[in-house]
Design a binder for these strands. Structure first.
Lengths: 142, 142
DNA sequence: GAAACTGTATAGCACGCCTATGTATATCCA
DNA sequence: TGGATATACATAGGCGTGCTATACAGTTTC
C-alpha cells in the first residue's frame, strides 16, 4: 500500500489534498489577512527586516504585488518601512509588535480550524500526518 | 518523535506546510485557472451537473462568487449552463469536453511541480507522504 | 562619465472574494 | 386560493491579490 504510488500519481494526489485543505482554511479560518500576508509577516518575524524586492522574491510574487501588500500592512501598523541604511533606493520592511500579535492570532485561528478536525482522527492518522511533516519540508525547500 | 506533537502544534505545523505548498504551486504551476476553478471543474467532472448554489456551497464560496466563476468558465467553453429541468429559477452547470481536457491539463501541470520535487526525495519520505494521504482525506471530509 | 543595472512606486487590468440588493419562481399555510 | 415567505440566480459595488508595463531615482560597471 505504502509503495503503490508512482511518483506522478503521488504528486497529483498530494496536490489535490493541498488544494482542498487550503479551501477549507480559506472558508473557515477567521478572515483578516491573506495567506500571502501571513507568510510575509512570518518571514519578517523569522528572518528580520528585509527589502521589498527580497520579500517579493522569497514569497514568489512580483515586486509591485509586494509593494502593495507592504503598503497595506504598513497602513494597518503591522509593518514599518524605513529607508535602507546603505542604499537610498531601497526601503527596509520590519514587522511591528502589533504585527507580531496579529501574526500569532492569525496562525492560531487557522490552526484551530485544522485542530477541530484533527481531534476527530485516531492516533494513527495523526501520527501519519506528523510523520509527513519532514517530508513536506523537503518538498518545500528550494 | 512521532507522538511528540500536541494536536494544536500538529495543526499549526500542518497549516504552515499547506500554506507553503500552496504558494509553491501558485508560483510555479502554469497559469490558467485558479484553484477555485480547478476544484469546481473537478467537482462537476466527478459529480455531474449541478446548480450554482449547490456548487457554491460545496466549494465554500458565496453564491455570487460562484455565479461569476461559472460565467467566466462558460465564456471559455469549459462549462455549459442550461435551464434546470424542473425549477425555472435555476440553471444546471455541466462540464464540457473542452472543460475536461483543460481540467486534465491543469491537474497535470500542478502535479508536475510537485513531481519534480518528489523526484528528489528518498523512498522513505515519499512513503511518509503517501501514508499521510488517507489521514488528509479524513481531515478534509465534512 | 556614460551606459547599464537595480529598487521601488505607479498605472492599468483581470480575477477572486465578500455583502447587499433586485427579480423571478417556488413553497407554505390559513 | 391567495398572500406571505423562502429560494435561485443575477447584478452592483467594494476591496484585495495577482500580473505586466512603465517611470524615476539611485547604484554599479567599464
Amino acid at each position: 500500500m505504502l509503495y503503490s504510488f508512482a511518483i506522478e500519481d503521488l504528486a497529483a494526489q498530494l496536490e489535490r489534498r493541498v488544494a482542498l485543505v487550503s479551501q477549507l482554511l480559506r472558508a473557515h479560518a477567521p478572515r483578516g489577512l491573506s495567506v500571502g500576508a501571513l507568510l510575509t509577516l512570518r518571514r519578517l518575524d523569522a528572518d528580520g527586516p528585509q527589502r521589498v524586492t527580497d520579500l517579493a522574491a522569497a514569497e514568489l510574487v512580483a515586486q509591485p504585488t509586494m509593494t502593495a501588500l507592504v503598503n497595506r500592512l504598513e497602513q494597518e501598523g503591522l509593518v514599518r518601512k524605513t529607508p535602507h541604511v546603505s542604499d537610498a533606493r531601497a526601503v527596509q520592511v520590519a514587522i511591528t509588535a502589533i504585527g507580531r500579535t496579529q501574526l500569532a492570532e492569525l496562525r492560531a485561528g487557522r490552526a484551530a480550524v485544522l485542530q477541530t478536525r484533527l481531534d476527530r482522527l485516531d492516533d494513527e492518522a495523526r501520527a501519519a500526518l506528523a510523520a509527513a511533516l519532514p517530508a513536506l519540508d523537503r518538498l518545500i525547500e528550494p
